[in-house]
Nucleic acid binder design. Structure first.
Length: 119
DNA sequence: GTAATGACCAGGC
DNA sequence: AGCCTGGCCATTA
């Protein structure tokens, strides 16, 4: 199902282009299958926003944690969580991923096995 | 309008 | 393996 997390009714809607981009990105993230992960760059590319990897991170940062977006399936190109190891978010992310059957080796995810680049 | 920031990436050393 | 540098683009002050 689509994310539709962007409440355009309340959001100030800075620009419509950004709105489309963010919606595409959020939708793409919600399409990540369980047991798989995706990188910021790949998400941006799948969302048709090639080169806007940083924007993906910004959206996740702004989004609430209760959002239906599986933020924990999003990792950086190095196969690691973008949070410091001391952060609770980092621990929680790896925990959630391991719950989905993803093998994590020394705080690192094997992108060669678990990377999802679309269908 | 300019400058700084950021859950990034690829390349070079 | 790690660390640094430049580039990327939207948001924010």
């Amino acid at each position: 199902m689509v994310a539709s997390e962007s409440k355009r009714s309340d959001e100030p809607l800075t620009t419509k282009m950004a709105n489309e981009t963010q919606d595409a990105i959020l939708t793409t993230i919600s399409r990540i299958p369980k047991g798989k992960v995706c990188t910021y760059g790949v998400i941006a590319k799948l969302a048709g926003a090639h080169g806007k990897a940083r924007y993906v991170g910004h959206l996740l940062k702004k989004l609430p944690t209760d959002s239906s977006i599986p933020w924990h399936r999003v990792v950086n190109a190095q196969g690691k969580s973008s949070f410091p190891e001391t952060s609770q978010k980092h621990q929680e992310q790896l925990k959630l991923l391991s719950e989905e059957g993803i093998t994590i080796r020394n705080h690192r995810i094997q992108l060669t096995h678990y990377l999802w680049q679309g269908e």
